[in-house]
Design a protein around this nucleic acid. Structure first.
Lengths: 414, 414
DNA sequence: TTAATTTTTTCGAGGCTCGAAAAAAAGAGC
DNA sequence: GCTCTTTTTTTCGAGCCTCGAAAAAATTAA
């Protein structure tokens, strides 16, 4: 913050507080908002009446009177679903999910399609995304153009959240999804890392479990991580950062999908489990796409008896555990969410993970570290993506200095 | 930020901006401050006249007219050295440095003493620090009590910056320096990690080289790191964090001073170099305090010919390089400062460090990463410590709502 | 129907920043 | 030495913003 705070910044921030309070709480009254924001009732009254006049908020007449108390009943405020909308797009290996989200966060429409991402051309892939969004927007009732698109992809995005720098789902690099979608559809677009979206979603869904500090580790074909630190989503300085899966576990170690040697992913990714359980050499080339069934069969075999499968999971757990220990050395220990297909094998992974953490700087707290599992990552990614897009709209709403109110009768001039 | 912005926060922030601008720039004029803060001239005028009335700032009559231009000459504003003072204390293995710093950042007095930190009792050590500060304060001319003490130590501090949780310079853990010094001397005290202070100092000294993002790696008997990310000093959530030296380089690897196996320090710390060059086993117990001369002899031997010494430095560089590569995977690449005695051997370390980084996720930029060396870490630690203490005073100054002005004539009431 | 209670709005006071104008403090030119 | 020009700094009124107190509104309890 090198720049001074001007007078209008104050209003903007307090408007953001009010919108944020309404989004976080479920239909709070003005008095409740005043309590959580610690602003005075008069300020909340002024700001909320502005926001209602602008159409962002609505007074909700709850049919069931919440609590028949004495006194003037509280008036619940809610987000006006029709005020605006956003699009959340999730691009995974061979699949493309699109959702239309109302301003209040409800899903208005949704679509999934298959897409051969690995074999498509660069432009072809980008155009497919444009087309999918266009299709989604055209098939519903006639609506205003959404205010924002958020696109989540596995891989590395740039710091301006507009480009996909690298991803395992496509052989192409540096795809400018942001500028392209903006040009073709006229909608500002951000590109986000999928694991970061998982972290965002976890915080929204279970704010008491996933508070200011936690790790979300995605165990799937690749290994990803999203990290909340001091209440903020952690990102790199030039990119999405947090490339946990490609931290080096063993120098000169197993061959990774990324071409390097000894990455955590090269021990804990699905392809690594298959390679290791099959008794292949660590330098055998990684398989492309492993089916979920194959991994489950491996896990069952590992549960059944000692053998190559169990050893493979042990090596995977060790890689994850040492990696997490290194994270703890940097960030300090925090709760961990194990997300994705790998969560189904967490019963086999937990012991080696904890054993490895105990060997690291985070080790003194090894027993106290809480793990939770969440096998299905897709709903989280979509939800995080939607909330990220909505956060942009909320910022815009907060910044919109009490709208010019042109052609808007019923509003007295001061 | 869950709490609303009230009206007085605005003034507080803008006062902080002005104080900060004066501290950063060298005696700027009001107009220059207005330019850097983007506040209006009237606001700067009002705030700076308040700050002058309160005694924090002074108008500096520079003997040499900076630039004989036409028009009313600018009046330079400076920090009033006599306004307040702070104490910076640096506790290292067997040494204790204390400095009295004026509000303008100049060193008013300074003292060093030897101290057998490894053999002293817990209370004894703490009392020695109290006594050293008391001694420093008593020997000069009679002054007001300093506003703040900042204590820098190698090791891990807690998140409230008041306790030393663990340190290699003493066998004791969890020493409450903060509360103790505050109780005994009546001066609020913060305890800080030494490498974090190095990072702070680098940013103050060479803001263009060490800007918003850089790593400061201390190579000494132990391995430490301070990290600036997005303009902020990086710290853990419960502790000072950033324990680079105790990230695991090789699982089940060499024995570290901390008792664990395979830490980066166990390959790159002074004791590790000596152990490795002597042909000792990786599990040989680490030596306590290695003299600087011994390391320089090792480095000379390594420069002279291929052999065990050169191999030791190569292993050290590899450990550092892989560790930095892992940092780059999380934070993204950034300039690196190699600080401390190890900087003198950087000519031998650079090649293996770069080679290792090239094997990691940060590898694509391996050649572009800039290294700078700074062999003498003590001045940096003391400087960072002083600036940290002064930052607290600046915050207080900013928060002090235009002082009651009691018994202060010559100030018209509005 | 009246009293009590709680929420929400209204209103004036006090602060803060800003732009414009005025004041201040120099050099330039004659 | 005097006036004009230029630049910095201060002054002053306008416009916002938040706050506390009081008023208004909307309900239950008696």
């Amino acid at each position: 913050m090198t720049v001074g705070v001007r007078h209008d910044d104050l209003r903007r921030r307090n408007r953001a507080m009010v919108v944020g309070a309404v989004r976080r709480a479920t239909q709070p009254s003005r008095t409740e908002i005043a309590a959580t924001t610690r602003l005075s009732n008069s300020t909340i009254s002024a700001i909320s009446s502005d926001l209602i006049a602008e159409g962002a908020l609505v007074e909700v007449k709850s049919g069931e009177t919440a609590l028949a108390r004495r006194g003037r009943p509280q008036v619940a405020l809610g987000l006006n679903p029709g005020f605006d909308s956003v699009v959340s797009v999730v691009l995974t290996l061979n699949q493309l999910w699109t959702s239309l989200i109302s301003y209040d966060g409800t899903v208005a429409d949704e679509a999934v399609q298959r897409l051969p991402t690995m074999t498509m051309g660069k432009d072809e892939l980008a155009e497919a995304v444009v087309e999918a969004v266009r299709c989604l927007l055209q098939r519903g009732p006639r609506r205003r153009r959404p205010a924002r698109i958020a696109l989540a992809v596995q891989g590395i995005t740039d710091s301006s959240d507009s480009r996909l720098l690298w991803s395992p789902i496509t052989p192409h690099s540096d795809i400018a999804f942001g500028p392209l979608l903006e040009e073709r559809l006229g909608i500002p677009t951000t590109v986000q890392n999928d694991c970061n979206m998982i972290a965002v979603a976890l915080k929204w869904r279970w704010p008491q479990r996933y508070g200011a500090d936690f790790f979300a580790v995605l165990l799937s074909n690749g290994i990803g991580m999203g990290l909340m630190q001091k209440g903020q989503l952690f990102t790199g300085t030039h990119s999405s950062g947090g490339e946990f899966g490609h931290m080096i576990h063993v120098p000169h170690g197993a061959l990774c999908r990324c071409g390097r040697r000894g990455c955590i992913e090269a021990y804990a990714g699905n392809y690594a489990l298959v390679r290791s359980a099959a008794g292949g050499a660590e330098t055998d080339p990684p398989a492309a796409d492993i089916g979920q069934a194959e991994i489950e069969a491996l896990a069952d075999a590992a549960r059944a008896s000692e053998g190559r499968e169990r050893a493979a999971f042990r090596r995977a757990g060790e890689a994850i555990g040492y990696g997490m220990g290194n994270l703890f050395a940097l960030f300090d220990p925090a709760p961990v969410a194990i997300v994705g297909p790998g969560a189904l094998a967490f019963d086999i992974l937990e012991e080696p993970i904890r054993a490895a953490i105990a060997q690291t700087a985070g080790g003194q707290h090894s027993g106290a570290i809480s793990f939770a599992t969440e096998p299905n990552e897709m709903p989280l990614i979509r939800e995080g993506c939607a909330m990220t897009a909505l956060a942009f709209v909320d910022d815009q709403v907060a910044a919109r200095a009490s709208a010019p109110a042109a052609h808007q009768p019923g509003r007295a001039m001061a």
